[in-house]
Design a protein around this nucleic acid. Structure first.
Lengths: 150, 150
DNA sequence: GTTCGTGCAAATACTTTGCAAGTCG
DNA sequence: CGACTTGCAAAGTATTTGCACGAAC
């Protein structure tokens, strides 16, 4: 997928930034990842090919890439920040409050909501992030053992 | 709303915990708040009536209350963790990547999705959190000034 | 008296910043 | 040369932990 990295380069240049080796490597790691990565995972990933990579460079780079719209950050309860390539798809997670199990939902649950919101609120390039949190069967019964009077 | 605090007490007791003055105050502050509060806001709030309140007590208490299901944590891009009384309503935020403006959406955008998910995934007591992120009109044009070739 | 909870101080973890040196246009 | 970047070290924040003391069961 050189195309992606090339177009990233263009975008950065237009904003007066360079696609340095470090930035390139970070984008590459993010791109090759299936989902979102934590700061540490990114660091690790880059260090496989460039052991010298510095943590503060990661932070600075991610902030830059976020600002120009190449990556986005994801927050999930109980976890640190994570990052991923900015893509035009909805995120849908199902989280159990009890055991903190996290499931990715694939079904298209949100339909044409994005369009609807763009029109209604004059927002553009919107992505949706749905977090469904509740209790899985197991944790639910644990909860209820305490909740029901008696 | 003494009822709420009383039932919190019951719940805690059942799990072998006590509703100490500190915990009581924290719940009270959260309850009186309109929306979600940051750790600092909670500390501040409690200190109005009890200047001695300690930060680590806040952390420990929130973790406890979260675990028993009385409060929940909320993460929004670019902000620290926030907490609120666990209530059975959906959160819907609209965030601008550019200026980080945050808008609460009131409309009922998600319909019967909760029920649907409970049935389909065997999760219970689910709440939904929708984060719609995009660019507001102003930031969108700024972006485009850079994005369009030329 | 034993378990639970708090305050305080110290330890960790996470993130940002300042600066000297290197790279690219 | 001048603007942009990085690595490193240091400074900041945020969060967690250990422990002695006090309160509740």
């Amino acid at each position: 997928m050189l195309n992606y990295l090339e177009s990233s380069n263009e975008l950065l240049q237009k904003r007066g930034y360079r696609l340095t080796p470090q930035r390139y490597m970070i984008l590459q790691v993010l791109q090759e990842a299936v989902g979102h990565l934590s700061i540490d995972q990114i660091l690790e990933g880059v260090r496989k090919s460039y052991p010298h990579m510095n943590l503060s460079t990661i932070y600075r780079t991610l902030e830059l890439l976020r600002e120009v719209g190449l990556v986005r950050e994801i927050h999930l309860p109980g976890e640190g920040v994570q990052f991923e390539i900015f893509a035009d798809h909805a995120h849908q997670h199902l989280l159990c409050h009890g055991c903190r199990a996290l499931i990715h939902l694939d079904a298209d649950l949100l339909g044409n909501l994005p369009k609807q919101i763009e029109l209604q609120y004059h927002f553009y390039g919107v992505t949706l992030d749905l977090l469904v949190a509740g209790y899985c069967e197991k944790c639910w019964s644990t909860m209820n053992a305490f909740n029901t009077s008696g």
